[in-house]
Every structure is written in C-alpha cells, then in structure tokens.
Design a protein around this nucleic acid. Structure first.
Ligand SMILES: [Mn+2]
Ligand SMILES: [Mn+2]
Ligand SMILES: [Mn+2]
Ligand SMILES: [Mn+2]
Lengths: 219, 219
DNA sequence: AATATTATTTAGATTTGTCTAAATTATATT
DNA sequence: AATATAATTTAGACAAATCTAAATAATATT
C-alpha cells in the first residue's frame, strides 16, 4: 500500500480523533487538518476505495483494521523522530512537532527500526505519549489523569494532551516539564484554577485550560 | 522561496549535471530524473518564472546564482543525512542514497545545522563527496582522480562517482571502501582493465567501468 | 409538523506534476 | 543543399489535492 503524504495525514488524524468514538465527523477532520469539509469528503472516497476507512455518506468515518495498523505506524515514526530531535539534537519539546510532522512521512521500515534502536527503544515521546513498537503494540501505559481531575496532593507530570507550542512555551516558562513533581496547594471552585507548587519554587496558580492539558500520575 | 519536492529534485539534478558545463540539456535532466523530456520543459518554465534557472527554448538550462545557492543547500542536507544513516544508524554506503533522497526535503535550517553539529560537522559523505557548510562553502577538496586515469602505484580510495547500489555492492564484495589502500599491479591496454591488490588480499582485476567510478588520491 | 440551523456532499474550478502524440527546431549525413 | 535523425517543445489529457458556492440531508427549535 503506497500512500501519499496527504493520505497519511488524514489516516493519522482520523486515528487521533477516533479514540473511543465509533465514528469521526467530516467537520472534525477538516478542523484538525486545517482544511475544508468538502476536501475531507473527497479524500474519504479515496480512502474508502483503498479499504483504509469505512465510510457511507452522512454516516461518519472510521478506520478499518488495516487503516488503524497504518495509523499506528505513522504515530510510531512521528514520536520516534520527536525523541531523536529532543534527545540527540537538543531541541526543546515545543519545537519538535512540526519537524516530526514531515519526518514521519519518510517511509523505510529499516530506517525507523534502526532509529528506535539508536534511541534505546524509547516507550514514550517528549510529550509523554506512548510509542508503539514495530508490531504496533503499545507498552501498557500507566493510567494518566489530567491535573484538573486528579485528587491526590503530590503528582508527577507525565504528559500533555495539547501539543501546541503556546502551551508548551507556557509550561517551559513556569518550569513544568515531564517528570516535574507538583504539589497541589489549593483548588478554587470559582474558575477551577489550581494553585500548585514545584520544589524550590514559590507557589503559583494555573488556569483550568492549562490544568486540563497537563497529564499526571499519582506518586 | 518555498519549493516543492519536485522542484527541489529538478534543481539538484541540474546542479549535478551542470558541473563545468555551461548548460544542461532537456534530455539529460529527463534521463537523470527518470522522467520525460516534455515534463522537463514544463518544469523549466516554472523554474524560470521563479528565477532559479536561465532558460530560453532550445538553448538549454542553467542555474541562476539563487538556484545554485538552493541546490547546494539541498546537497548539504542530502549528504549530512547520509552521514547520519551510516555513522549513527549503521547503514552501509549502498543503502543510504534513496532514504536521503527523501530526508533532504525536510526543510528546517535549525534541524540541519543541529544535525551537522551532532555528526561533528563532517566535510565528506559516505561516498567521499564533499559536504558544503551552512554558508554553502565547500572545504577545499583534495584533487581526486578516477582510478582508470591515476598514474601512481599506491593509491587510496577517496570516493565513488556513481552512487548506484550495484556498484557499491560490488565494491563491498571486493572489500573496497573509503580509505582502502590499493596497489596497482598491472594495467591491460586491451580492455583497460586494472589488476589491483589490497593489503592482505590476493590481487584481482577490475573492469574499466568500475575503475572509472572509483575516485582515488595519491598517497 | 413546520422551520431554522448545522453538517455534509456535489458540482465545477484550480494548481501541480506528469504523460503521450504530434509538431517544430536543431544537428548530422549524404 | 537536401534529407534524415535527434532533441525539444506544444497541445491536450489525466490524477491528486485542494478550493468556493450551491444543493441536499440531518438535527434542533419553535
Ligand atoms: Mn505529517
Ligand atoms: Mn509528541
Ligand atoms: Mn530527493
Ligand atoms: Mn552521497
């Protein structure tokens, strides 16, 4: 199956949006890929033809098993390149997404497997997202909760659910990165903001938008 | 100047074919890129429009200074990725060309400069070809001669002028790689074959086609 | 149930990169 | 110089990926 870059981007987007959902809407994909619903409909017909998605008009889109398999391989490539950029080329976590968005389309099994080995077969990327192995298996990922829903007092940052550089830059500025230990000082009901404290720093408050996108595990 | 992958491939091909030549022919480019002369003519019009080549119909094609500048950057990316694949991911020199052919199109100055640094700012790629620096300057390259024209007896392999995996696999089989020291035992006028000897090996004969593509320096 | 709103698809165009077949120009051979 | 051959360009077509505007279908609201 030889896919174009555009087809790969659609497959990956559908995979991301499906997560639990039975079916993904035309509009959701268009929004995610910054394109127009009409373009999504056009592409849906092509991907259906290639048996990578199930699609009946007005009924939404979902990946076939083969489509899902391919999506996971693209995710693997994306996340391994992100690791490379951060671990080997000292990029910071807010700079790697766009570059990986291109590198993920260089298709060579040997390349990606050698890259994985070179990086020590990492199982999570710089944003805390799990990296599937060559067979598409995800290592059992620890139950993560978003900071706004976590109940424990002492937490460790284990991921971010939004990859936008605006969020990542904000977290950089506040000294929050993967592995950072956080103590929850107070939760304010009025706006759902959270006052937190990082070791050796004075406490500060973050908004609900931010806390929703910080994934944590309980220590 | 935002170029497509196709445009970059054309620019690079023209750069390679120009070498000394005042002008490159439509047919030569078509052959090199495994496409048709009519397609080259179409692309020539676009690249002329973008002021990357000089072109008047029936008069051949040549790069403008800006076209040349861009070509050199693509060559830099291509060769650095080849180094990465060989030095860091233990690919052999006959496996890297195709993959680098894709990686070279990922455009991020920061990426390529960080990659260069990570590799120790190499000045030659796995095939002995020079790598231009970020400013497009080539480090003064030693005068190389092809083995069929070299007159000295003791030589060192410093490059190959053909990147095809068929040649590289042949050289692998014979134990010839960059840095290999060769003694010329005999040159046969009849078919221009050359008998050579590599340290700790018995002598063997190589054809003119092969010796033409091995670049050597005199020790 | 009728109407308004939203989501989705279709129709028709555009851009990029390619092709084949035919026409034209340049070059080589007699 | 005339003719043959080779190189190049043009004309017209197609596939991929996108768009806008209009049509249609699904859903929500009165
Ligand atoms: Mn992508
Ligand atoms: Mn990531
Ligand atoms: Mn290329
Ligand atoms: Mn090379």
């Amino acid at each position: 199956m030889n896919l174009t870059v555009a087809e790969e981007n659609y497959i990956k987007s559908i995979y991301k949006l499906q997560d639990g959902q039975a079916v993904v809407s035309t509009n959701a994909i268009a929004y995610d890929l910054d394109t127009k619903p009409a373009s999504v409909t056009d592409m849906a017909k092509k991907l259906k033809e290639k048996k990578l998605i199930d699609y009946e008009k007005y009924q939404g889109i979902s990946l076939t098993p083969e489509g899902k398999r391919i999506a996971i391989q693209i995710v693997r490539r994306h996340r391994l390149w992100e690791c490379f950029l951060v671990d080997k080329l000292s990029f910071s976590w807010d700079e790697v997404h766009e570059i990986a968005e291109e590198l993920e389309h260089v298709r060579s099994e040997k390349l990606i497997n050698r890259l994985s080995e070179f990086l020590g077969n990492p199982t999570t990327d710089p944003h805390g997202d799990p990296i599937p192995d060559a067979q598409g298996k995800f290592s059992k990922n620890k139950q993560l909760v978003s900071l706004d829903k976590a109940t424990a007092r002492r937490l460790e940052v284990a991921g971010v659910s939004d990859q936008s550089s605006s969020l990542l830059e904000f977290l950089n500025a506040k000294g929050i990165k993967l592995g950072t230990q956080i103590d929850v000082i107070e939760r304010y009901e009025f706006d759902n903001s959270v006052e937190i404290k990082i070791r050796n720093q004075s406490a500060f408050t973050i908004s609900e938008q931010v806390s929703k996108n910080i994934m944590v595990k309980i220590l």
